[in-house]
Design a protein around this nucleic acid. Structure first.
Lengths: 196, 196
DNA sequence: GTCATCCTTTAACAAATGTTAATGGATACG
DNA sequence: CGTATCCATTAACATTTGTTAAAGGATGAC
């Protein structure tokens, strides 16, 4: 992918969050390296160094953690055209505290986080973009928090379907169940119940 | 409270998160206005404008939301000596999407968020402090997210006690129950069970 | 001191969710 | 074509949590 292609691909994705000038878009695109992963690939490992920011060009991925007992807990899904959680929020001293996994063939833009931070410092529109990403991130977390705390499993599944409708036929139900905070058996029961 | 007193009070609170130079501490203290609230006071209203950052000097407060049905859901607790969620993460266009309430007599430092953002832009140590606050905020959310998703109510109560031990005898159990994602009746049962 | 009020606890029953194990269906591979 | 594997579903039973209502205990106003 050449510079112009990267720019064209990045523009709608960035503007959807918070529009930036053509110049700023160019500065961001300069930092972008395109990465491609296959379904199932883990491209950020918990405990390993990561100093990148990411945009999802194509495909779907998730963040997840391992419980002490060994089960995986899905924390978030990231869809095509979205921005991954800011580096600062998913690392401590550049060490990742989450795993990220491609759930389909995945094409993503990666940017050096330090260089991107410099862009944020020097350019108000890029800073505004970064802050909006952050805001959206927290908002999504609060939303999920409320859903987990105050809805029952059936209501959470309905909410999930409104937000991630197409994921249900794309992704392992074990993953979805862990995202919803239930077992896959319960998920199966709820699916049946909601058909009737 | 005069400038020096504010500085002395702010220093340990800030350094606990990420140390800043004496000069930076002074710049931050310059922005601080001390506010005092009584138990039960709501000092940030959902839907209303808020453009401040806050440090908790004395007392305890919580963030909460109202469900459509009218019940309150406690989202987070903030203890003495801690920093409230960054303005950017709890507002959209300067409009708050959460309520904040004093749970005891509360003394807090408030700072104009725009001016503080300027300090972050111009001073690396203050920026680092701000980023650490953010990181901790997200980390706490992920931690709670995992607890809600993968522990049962009894385990969550045990975790809550480890983290907020003294709150249990200070705060309404209805609030705590909503934080734990259970009813206050369940909380009462679990308390009994854990005594035996 | 008495009463009113608010919060916590308890009880009895209902509903939701988890656990374990078996079954069925799809898919890839030899 | 057959078989191994992976996932989703179903069943039976246990456990957890919710709902409604009543009782007990603390606290403050008068």
């Amino acid at each position: 992918m050449n510079f112009e292609q990267i720019k064209e691909r990045t523009r709608p994705l960035v503007n959807k969050v918070s529009p930036v000038s053509e110049g700023s878009l160019g500065l961001m695109s300069d930092l972008i390296v395109v990465e491609v992963y296959e379904k199932g690939d883990i491209f950020i490992d918990r405990g390993k160094k990561n100093n990148k920011e990411y945009f999802v060009y194509e495909g779907v991925c998730r963040s997840f953690l391992l419980r002490p007992e060994g089960e995986e807990v899905t924390i978030s899904y990231f869809l095509e055209g979205s921005v991954l959680s800011p580096n600062k929020t998913r690392t401590a001293n550049q060490i990742s505290h989450l795993n990220f996994q491609a759930l389909t063939k995945l094409t993503i833009a990666s940017l050096n986080a330090d260089k991107f931070e410099q862009l944020m410092i020097n350019h108000m529109d890029i800073r505004q973009f970064g802050n909006m990403v952050l805001q959206n991130e927290l908002l999504a977390k609060v939303e999920k928090e409320i859903a987990l705390a105050s809805l029952n499993a059936k209501e959470r599944l309905i909410l999930f379907r409104e937000k991630y409708h197409f994921l249900e036929n794309l992704i392992s139900h074990v993953d979805i169940a862990s995202y919803l905070g239930i077992t896959n058996i319960s998920l199966s029961r709820l699916r049946k119940e909601l058909i009737e």
